[in-house]
């Protein structure tokens, strides 16, 4: 749990890479998945993605492995148990954020907001 708290909060990019790896994917597969999940908003650069994958492997959140990819030049990755725990923790944190934001905006934003 301590390790998870240390890794939180994740950047948006890291969060999307992690959830896309709930199924095994190679680098380009991750780019496409993140692009479609974010409705075209997050366009991952290959330099950014390559660096992020290395860091996620080092942190023990994803692992490279053999998952029937035909081209041996492409590494395939999948999320680890620790990675899944981290996603759950992040989801709770993000839910708290949106709930608090909505609650306060509803209560106070309505009074002093738009005229």
């Amino acid at each position: 749990m301590n390790k998870i708290k240390k890794l939180s909060p994740l950047t948006e990019t890291t969060f999307y890479i992690l959830i896309s790896l709930l199924e095994p994917l190679h680098g380009y597969g991750i780019m496409q998945e993140v692009l479609s999940l974010s409705k075209g908003r997050i366009h991952l650069g290959p330099g950014t993605l390559y660096g992020a994958l290395g860091n996620l492997v080092k942190a023990g959140l994803i692992v490279p492995g053999e998952y029937g990819e035909t081209n041996p030049r492409r590494k395939i990755y999948i999320i680890t148990g620790l990675g899944k725990e981290l996603i759950k923790y992040e989801l709770l944190r993000l839910k708290e954020m949106t709930q608090n934001g909505e609650k306060l905006l509803h209560k106070k934003g309505a009074e002093n907001g738009s005229k």
Binding site: T11, T13, I42, H43, L44, G45, P46, G47, T48, G51, A52
Partner: peptide, 15 residues
Amino acid sequence: KNQELYSDNTSKIRM
């Protein structure tokens, strides 16, 4: 079209 190898600042700073 965004034509950068690094799509965010954090990763470019790492480089």
